[in-house]
Every structure is written in C-alpha cells, then in structure tokens.
Design a protein around this nucleic acid. Sequence first.
DNA 1: CAAAAATGTTAGTCACGCCTAACTATGATA
DNA 2: TATCATAGTTAGGCGTGACTAACATTTTTG
Lengths: 131, 131
Amino acid sequence: MSQSLSSSIEDYLEAILALTESGEPVRVTDVAKKLGIAKPSVTEAVRTLRDRGLVTQKPYGRIFLTAEGLMQSARVRKRHVVLRTFLQDVLGVNEEQAEIDACRIEHVVSTETMDKIVAFLEQDQTAGQQF
Amino acid sequence: MSQSLSSSIEDYLEAILALTESGEPVRVTDVAKKLGIAKPSVTEAVRTLRDRGLVTQKPYGRIFLTAEGLMQSARVRKRHVVLRTFLQDVLGVNEEQAEIDACRIEHVVSTETMDKIVAFLEQDQTAGQQF
DNA sequence: CAAAAATGTTAGTCACGCCTAACTATGATA
DNA sequence: TATCATAGTTAGGCGTGACTAACATTTTTG
C-alpha cells in the first residue's frame, strides 16, 4: 500500500497541507496559484490524489486531506524543513537558495540519508531546532 | 547557450564519459547496458546529445564526446563524486546508499549549494580528498 | 433574483523518456 | 565471399505532467 509518490504529487500534497493550515477552505485555484501552474493541472492531480485516498473532494468542491494524506504531507514537509535547515545552518547556503534546493532534494533523497541528516543536526549546536 | 540538461540527459553524458575513459570505443549497446535501458532509448538520447553539440556519432557509428560534451560530463561527474563523498564521509551514509542518493541529488542541486559542500569538505579532516 | 464574475472541469495537445517489435546495417567467420 | 550474429535504427505506443480553449457550475452582487 501507499506506493511511492512522484515529485509532483508530493508538491501538491505539500501545498495542500500549507493551505489547509491557513484555516481557509482549500480550492483548486489556491493550489494552482501556490504552485504557479494552471488550474486544469490541479484538477487532474487532485483526481490522482483522490484515487490514492490522500484527499477528498466532491465535484466543484473544496479539497480536504484524509488522515493518510495528512500523514504523507507531513512526512514530505518534515523532509523539506530538515533539508532547508541543514543547508542553511550547516552549509551556510542562503535562505532563498536553501529553500529552492530543499524543494528539489526532498523528492529524491533516501530515508537513510534523511536520518543521517537529522542525527547530524541533533549533535550540532549551530542548528537550534530539534527534530 | 548550453541550456540546462535534464536528469536523464545528464545520466547519459555521465555514462558516456565513464565508458570513454575505459579506452574502448563507446557503442549504443554499452550505454544501454550501463544504464539498464533499451537500445532505442539510447539512440534517441544520442540524437538529443548530438543536437546539443555534446557528442558526435555517424549513423551506425561510435559515440564521441565533443569538447563541450567532455566539459559538461566532467561537471556532472564532479558533482556526483563530491556528493557521494559528502554523504559517506560527513554524514556516514553507507557506500551503496550514498551512491544512489548522489546519483539523484546531482541533477537537482544548485551550484551554490555544491560550492558550499566543497567548502565544507575542504575544511574537514574526515574527508581525505580535495576538490 | 438575474447577470456577471469567479471557480472548476473537460477535451485536446505537447514534450519527455521510456518501451517492444520489426527492420537495416555492419562485421566476423566458415 | 556468403552467411549469420551483433549492433543500430525506425516506427509506434504508453504514462506522466504540463498547457490552452471552451464549457459547466457556483457564488457574488447590483
């Protein structure tokens, strides 16, 4: 179950999570704006997410994360945050570029490497946060 | 000029560089074997590489890197090696996984972050090599 | 509450990157 | 040198993920 997600599907999930947390209902248009893509692309992606049980959406309705979708999107975001923190605080990459690189690396890096990065951050005082 | 290369094109370049260095003439079949894909996919990719001036190949002939292709493939491989070294020696990721992750990250990471990684390695005694 | 604006979907297209099947060319060898 | 194995290409197909144009549905508002 829960076969691995493509990069773009992970991006949709992450965007939907962020929008969900703003408290507002999540619309196709919002997702499209956030990701900088056209609305029909979102409609299509939402169908995929629905098929995988990650979101619910009635025709013309709002988008909601399922329990599974919430888990997955949180997982993706954790990777993102860990990577960005590592790039910024350990390597000294500037904020903007760290954000961009984290966005890309999060989709391809292994769980093992992520764990090692977390371990590195935990025993490193330059990084304030704990994971 | 030299617009950015897709992940798969970078993989082909890297494979062709490695085969070139073995001294043997580089054939479509060799590239296909090395990358674990079908021959027609290589034929097609080689056409793209030709169109971009990165390799030369006469019909049914061997594949040669141009000067530009040599530069580009060396650039890609340097990223790969730096990343693998970093993952292994700094983060302690095991050899096999470091190789896999380096393969993937090399295609998406920014020049700035690469530079920071090189800088990190240079002032770190656990990593023996210099870049 | 009817018209207009905003939102969402469908239909059709395209580029990429892979595949298999079938064909063509090359080169080794009997 | 004729044959046969090997190598390379062409043709056609498929999935992903984007796009635009056109249409359908809500929602807002005059």
